[in-house]
Design a protein around this nucleic acid. Structure first.
Lengths: 196, 196
DNA sequence: ACCTGAACACCGTTCAAGT
DNA sequence: ACCTGAACACCGTTCAAGT
């Protein structure tokens, strides 16, 4: 009815180029980055892509499936530090920093991800391999590895969530200092293993 | 139009008794407990109370304000352990356990609360006083108190979030063990202070 | 003072129909 | 194969009207 509709019909389908899953999910992620997960609606997303809302359902089963898809691609995007031969304390810190940087790049999606952990939990994820490697260096005994890595992951997750939603507007100095305190606490806590 | 409407009109207002804020917020909390925050709708809430949806707006400014109200009452409900003269290690553990119990009583609301931390942050809350007291006993120097308590609170929050959304369906033994690991890590981490 | 119905501007999703 | 419009069953909230 509106002239937007007429224009769209005239070009057969949205500007000529066909809709792709990649295009859908990256635009959806941008909307989430800009306004939080609750700002994503299938209708707004379709408008952003200059497409009929229902066209989306030809590429994606539901809004939920779309969000899960985005969660997956985000998780693969974390850049984990390699083993560089430095002491485990340094490597643990580097891992935590990398995780924090990753969270900062898509804060809203990250928060959603960790409040709906059923979406993650893929224990084959590279993060766990890296964490295991570092904890072995720290002297954590094999049977304690899984639990210890779970706990440390939970600690860092809690820390990042707090930092992301914490002090307005954003104080890098304060964040760095808090981060230092946290890493020191974790390293101290693990020190008991290598001492024995 | 439906006979429910006719019945309601006949009794003048919903079963005779007038609507109260208490009744609204406790019913809303029940709905959230049962189906998560996303299961709360003003219209479903009104139906549950056998009232016109718009009547709610006479007691509450918006759905958001209602949720904030519930967040507040929930937070006051946490039962914090008193100083009982035992070592700080025991008291820290007791505090963490109390916090976990509290989270378990309203998991959905608790998760929402900690993913929207702008709703909390009231530093006068009793939890911070208790944490400060314990950390002073642990030998944390005064200028480090705020940051250290922030970090430990973040750690416990992350741990609880993980536990709440973790292993299906619910393994108390595993939870207890993980909890032990976490508390030991924190106590070990803090031990550096009293040693000096 | 408190409650209500109709209405507005939104949602996600189904389905039958178009090219 | 891919896209579309109309429709359905929902939302939160405003507003004028009722008691």
């Amino acid at each position: 009815m509106a002239d937007a509709t007429i224009r769209r019909m005239a070009v057969s389908a949205r500007r000529g180029t066909p809709l792709t899953l990649e295009e859908i999910s990256s635009t959806a992620l941008r909307l989430i980055d800009e306004g939080g997960v609750e700002a994503l609606s299938m209708r707004k997303l379709a408008a952003e892509l200059d497409v009929n809302p229902m066209s989306l359902y030809h590429h994606v089963a539901s809004k939920d499936a779309l969000i899960r898809l985005i969660c997956g691609t985000i998780q693969q995007r974390v850049h984990l530090p390699e083993d560089n031969g430095t002491p485990w304390q340094d490597q643990l810190r580097a891992l935590a920093v990398a995780y924090y940087r990753h969270a900062r790049s898509h804060p809203a999606m990250w928060t959603y991800l960790h409040a709906h952990r059923e979406v993650i939990e893929d224990r084959t994820l590279a993060i766990w391999a890296t964490l295991y490697r570092i904890l072995r260096m720290a002297g954590v005994p094999e049977p304690e590895l899984r639990r210890t890595s779970d706990v440390l992951h939970a600690f860092v997750t809690g820390l990042i969530t707090t930092e992301l939603h914490g002090h307005v507007p954003d104080d890098p100095e304060e964040t760095a200092h808090t981060f230092d305190t946290a890493v020191h606490l974790m390293i101290n806590g693990l020190a008991g293993y290598s001492a024995r």
